[in-house]
Design a protein around this nucleic acid. Sequence first.
DNA 1: TTAAAAATCGAACGTTCGTTCGTTATTGAC
DNA 2: GTCAATAACGAACGAACGTTCGATTTTTAA
Lengths: 236, 236
Amino acid sequence: MSQMARSLAEFQQLIGWNPQRMWHDFHRQCLPQLSQKNPSRTESRLATIVEATFTLANRQGFHAMSLRQLSDASGMSLGGLYGYFASKDQLAASIHQFIRYQFEQVLLPLIDALPEPQRLDAICRYHLYLSELMQPWFFFAYMEARHQQSDLRKQAIALSERVDVELLLALNAHGEVQEPIIAVGLLKHLLQGWYLRRAHFQKTGVDVDAYTDYLLARITLFCHGETTNDRTLAAL
Amino acid sequence: MSQMARSLAEFQQLIGWNPQRMWHDFHRQCLPQLSQKNPSRTESRLATIVEATFTLANRQGFHAMSLRQLSDASGMSLGGLYGYFASKDQLAASIHQFIRYQFEQVLLPLIDALPEPQRLDAICRYHLYLSELMQPWFFFAYMEARHQQSDLRKQAIALSERVDVELLLALNAHGEVQEPIIAVGLLKHLLQGWYLRRAHFQKTGVDVDAYTDYLLARITLFCHGETTNDRTLAAL
DNA sequence: TTAAAAATCGAACGTTCGTTCGTTATTGAC
DNA sequence: GTCAATAACGAACGAACGTTCGATTTTTAA
């Protein structure tokens, strides 16, 4: 059984993550809708296009990004883009699909392989680490999810609820959870904070390891905390 | 000196909030760009239009919402809408401006009037309560802020940083804050969670009073918590 | 009741959007 | 170097966008 990773570097090594491999996986996922034959060139072009999509869409919104802007930013002609995706909507759908794939095929199996007492720690750490490695993807997925058509949105909700269940089970393994509905929601919200508030953390010099350690050290306090009046604001 | 409100109902009474008065204030703020003369009719039409904007924009994004959709949803003709705002961008700008106005003219004065020991509690409570009363406004402001033009965005950032300072000062009044940058960011993020995850809380039956009490009871634990190994996950 | 004022309407305008497609340039095997 | 095969190009298209404006309806006050 594999050891748990306790830092970004360890996690990266554990799953063998690097950008090249990520784009390779992404390319493989996009194959059905691609009209290109040369794999290696296609991989690097896909990376250019999707990275340009992130810089534009994560600033101004995917819907507000025009294909002419994407054409300029990626250095590729308007018509040339269509060799790499079937439509603008399909481009967004591929991104959403890939991040769901990463969750289901990479994160969840890693967590399932661990004994239950370690799972809460692992879910949080691995979520934070993966969202650090793929921050633009996570940000895009969060911000654009509600603009997707209903079947893709439903799949995202289903995955989200699966994580909720995992979190609740893992939390319960550490003792009775007070107000479990609020606790689980808050915990996931705190994990999302890392990639949603990335600019803030970058400006203030907080890295993912510091954030992770800070958070994990307080999670059990937060969720199981038997708050006594003299330690809470309510006493004022 | 006024007493602090400890529930949504008390807060609502304290600031004398009701929808009618809110739309009255909003109308007054919009006056400069309005071509309409009859105040009472204009107030109700504005309410209809802005509420329709929220239902459409908060689902699919403001940019993706067409004025033809807004025309249908508000029961007003395409040209008729332009009696109530100068342009589509101005409509969004008015909403952003109004929520900033509520923050600066309603929330901050209330907090400044309180003695320092009560301020942390008040900032959190009042932020949560106001965001409950005006949830669609807060959600809209959060989601659409990055699509605004730069001067409006800068004003929003300035206000956000002002809240950060208030939070940090208030936190410090309760003792030395460990990792203050992370703590303040997280605290604000938790406050935002209430209006960002509204659908989730509505589905699970959590109301703002329960959320507020849960949060406030754990804030000092979270921010000042001297975490010992036997109470944290790191010990596993 | 009536006429001026105010408000509403929706067809039409110019622009920009996503997308297509015939043409041109590039690539790779011999 | 030649020639298919592949990829990239960008002008052009129809649709949809935000906006305008003259005609029409509703409101207001005498």
